[in-house]
């Protein structure tokens, strides 16, 4: 029983990170109907920005401290938001009215470009990620939980709630949903569609950046290709939940994290990734629209 609970917490903490990344895939899919393959590289850049922030400006981004850690996350989120918006502006906006396949291929190109530039700049070898936050072991009954797991779950939960608020309750959030229904109709309401798309990229990329920092807290090694597997799994999570559906992405991320953690703890640990993708295929066979995705029916 204890071990089970321990694994659930580990799974939720991993799943929370997948959820954060998955949201970016799903939101961009919502407004532009394509998969932004460069998203996982924003996650990687997020981890590296944190890495270099504490290295270059140790007096500002103080390691092993709560204010320092919080400042790192905020700064990384802001930087990644900017990066996401620049990627959209330079790579995707010029292709706005081109076939979706061209945009998809461009996304793969952008992803390779960022990975290779990162390799050139940061080197290919994994580097140790510093301890941003003080780590303690919390004892809860017979459970012992690392405070890092609690922080990861707490920060991710806070960001998910904040995002839900933005998307449901703010004017720009309603506009995002309107744009994901139809660009031209949103424009007829006076919505500057380009601005909303840019905002969506910023929001998703900020979450990916936070995900990159949280991931590095749990798995403290950064390298230029570190985004690929988490990114792919987050993409699976987004499809699992129903691509374009925000609560779906969160649910998909959590499910995938929990399943992955349990498989890792079993005899089949070598097949962890194979199982993650087998789930994707199964879900798509039985529920092509994903767990929370709806098959839209035209009404007359």
């Amino acid at each position: 029983m204890n071990e089970f609970l321990q694994q659930v917490i580990n799974g939720v903490s991993l799943g929370a990170i997948y959820a954060l990344i998955a949201l970016g895939y799903t939101m961009v899919y919502g407004v532009l109907k394509f998969i932004n393959f460069a998203h996982s590289d924003v996650f990687m850049i997020g981890a590296f920005s944190a890495f270099y922030a504490v290295q270059k400006y140790p007096s500002v981004f103080v390691i092993n401290s709560w204010p320092g850690g919080a400042l790192v996350i905020f700064t990384v989120m802001a930087l990644c938001a900017l990066l996401g918006m620049v990627i959209e502006l330079l790579a995707y906006r010029p292709l706005r009215n081109k076939p979706r396949l061209s945009v998809l291929i461009t996304a793969i190109g952008v992803s390779l470009l960022i990975e290779n530039l990162a390799q050139l700049q940061f080197g290919a070898a994994p580097q140790h990620f510093p301890d941003l936050l003080p780590v303690t072991i919390i004892h809860l009954g017979n459970l012992s939980i690392s405070s890092t797991k609690i922080v990861v779950i707490g920060v991710a939960a806070f960001l998910l709630v904040a995002l839900e608020f933005i998307v449901r309750k703010t004017k720009i959030g309603v506009a995002m949903r309107a744009v994901s229904f139809n660009h031209q109709t949103a424009a007829l309401m006076g919505v500057n569609v380009d601005l909303v798309i840019s905002f969506t990229f910023g929001l998703g990329s900020a979450l990916a950046g936070a995900g990159g920092v949280l991931y590095s807290l749990s798995y403290p090694a950064v390298e230029p290709f570190m985004g690929i597997m988490p990114g792919l799994k987050a993409f699976v999570a987004a499809v699992l939940g129903g691509i374009g559906n925000i609560p779906g992405a969160a649910l998909g991320g959590l499910l995938l994290g929990i399943i992955e953690t349990f498989v890792k703890g079993s005899h089949y640990s070598t097949f962890t990734d194979a199982i993650a993708f087998a789930i994707l295929i199964l879900i798509l066979l039985f529920r092509p629209a994903g767990l929370l995705g709806k098959v839209q029916i035209e009404k007359v």
Binding site: K171, S180, G190
Partner: peptide, 15 residues
């Protein structure tokens, strides 16, 4: 906007 409520549709109209 089929994915929005009636009220949210009106909010968009008054954007």
């Amino acid at each position: 906007f089929a994915n929005l409520t009636v009220d949210e549709n009106l909010q968009m109209g008054g954007y």
